[in-house]
Amino acid sequence: MQLSSTRRGARLARLLVVQQLDDWGIPRDGRTASAVAAVVAEFAANAVAHGRTPGRDFAVRLTLTPESVRIEVTDTRPDRLPPEPGRVPELPGPAEESGRGLLLVEALADRWSMESRNPQTKTLWAEVDRPSHHG
């Protein structure tokens, strides 16, 4: 789905993803839905805050497999890259207002990374394993 690169678009991404998970039979109050919703919220917020090009939308794609839920958020700033997985900075101080989001992704996603599919965009992706597929 394409969403406006605004705070409202980021909130809508999370709500639409939770609804899709519910439609797929993944309980809203379960671990998988909670983790996916948090990852989408972070990726969408980053797309709006750091990946925004005026007048261009960001995209969210959700894929369900028997093993996991895959989240992809594509924005229009391939020049603004997040830290690599496993290299997310330490937790910021209590007075800092940002810098915790990718730590949350590290904690909740079983795998995540970034890829560039074309010169105009970048895609952050994450996979959250479904309960029957955890170690």
Rank of each mutant, 00 (worst) to 15 (best):
E106Y: 06
R14V: 07
L3S: 08
V36W: 02
F43K: 10
A109R: 04
L108V: 09
D57I: 00
E72H: 07
P66H: 09
R70M: 05
L62P: 06
N118R: 06
P78E: 03
G93L: 10
L64H: 15
D22K: 13
V73W: 00
H50P: 01
A59H: 08
H134F: 13
E97C: 14
I26Y: 07
R111M: 06
A59S: 07
R61W: 00
V36G: 00
G93A: 13
P27V: 05
G30D: 12
A10F: 05
R8D: 10
P92W: 08
A37C: 14
P85S: 07
A45K: 10
R14C: 05
W112F: 04
S34F: 09
S34R: 15
M114A: 08
R87I: 01
L108M: 03
F58T: 11
R100L: 05
S98F: 05
L21H: 11
L64R: 15
G99S: 12
S98D: 03
T53K: 12
A37E: 03
G93Q: 04
P89I: 04
H50M: 13
G86W: 13
T53A: 11
E115P: 00
G55P: 03
L3R: 12
M1L: 11
R31G: 04
L3E: 04
W24V: 11
R11K: 11
L108G: 04
W125Y: 15
T63E: 07
A44C: 09
R87Y: 10
S5H: 05
D79A: 12
R31N: 06
F58N: 06
A38H: 09
V105P: 01
W24T: 12
R14L: 00
M114P: 02
A44S: 15
T123S: 02
R8K: 11
L104I: 10
V39I: 14
F43T: 03
L3N: 05
R87P: 01
D75M: 04
N46A: 08
S116C: 07
T121Q: 08
R117E: 09
E90V: 13
E90L: 13
G30K: 14
E84Q: 14
L108A: 05
D75V: 12
S34G: 15
T76F: 02
R14D: 05
R7I: 11
S4W: 10
A107Q: 03
N118V: 03
